[in-house]
């Protein structure tokens, strides 16, 4: 792993759009000047609804190791129920951050020595005018607020481009609402 690398692992369900979310962040990070950007989806024989994850590696230098991330700096969870189903926080570094789409209170989560950020992206996305269950644009807003590593304007532009034919304004609004309503603790 490169010295300056940021390793982000995205957990969602098959069909939920975790790969698209990670791709949008990858594009925005590249535009902001990081030359090393790789997003490696981990493929099994997943079905729609089954737990899936993808690894996003960011660095100022070209990245040569395409293996999945086992010690992430940041974990993003698109569905809080996944925390009960699988050991998705495995390997999260001391001082790392976990971003969760959850309707629960911040006090319900405790990860020793890690920062937690939560946001009810599912509800906010519907308020933004998206169909129920579309959370991959919204979670990007929470990610931006919780980590502070990327400019929200760049992300919103990348979201509008990615969803240019699928409700670009509503998707951008979902991300902005999530950004404003993310609670950080831990």
């Amino acid at each position: 792993m490169k010295k300056d690398a940021i390793d982000i692992r995205w957990h969602g369900r098959g069909g939920q759009g975790a790969i698209t979310a990670a791709k949008i962040v990858a594009k925005a990070m590249f535009q902001s000047g990081y030359e090393g950007v790789v997003m490696v989806p981990t493929f099994g024989t997943e079905r729609r609804g089954a737990p899936v994850f993808t690894s996003l590696k960011i660095s100022t230098e070209k990245i040569y190791d395409l293996s999945p991330i086992d010690k992430p700096d940041i974990i993003v969870v698109l569905d809080h129920v996944l925390l009960e189903e699988a050991n998705i926080v495995d390997g999260l570094k001391e001082g790392g951050t976990i971003v969760i789409n959850s309707p629960c209170s911040i006090d319900d989560y405790r990860f020793e020595g890690r920062k937690v950020a939560i946001c009810d992206v599912t509800t906010l996305a519907q308020q933004a005018g998206l169909r129920e269950g579309i959370v991959n644009s919204g979670i990007i807003g929470s990610f931006a607020k919780a980590t502070g590593i990327i400019d929200m304007d760049l992300l919103v532009t990348a979201i509008r481009e990615e969803f240019s034919r699928r409700r670009p304004e509503e998707n951008a609004k979902a991300a902005l609402l999530a950004y404003e309503n993310t609670v950080i603790g831990g």
Binding site: K23, A26, E35, V37, V38, P41, L66
Partner: peptide
């Protein structure tokens, strides 16, 4: 396959 075919990079 996968490592390059399905991985995103610039």
């Amino acid at each position: 396959g996968y490592l390059l075919s399905h991985t995103y990079m610039p």
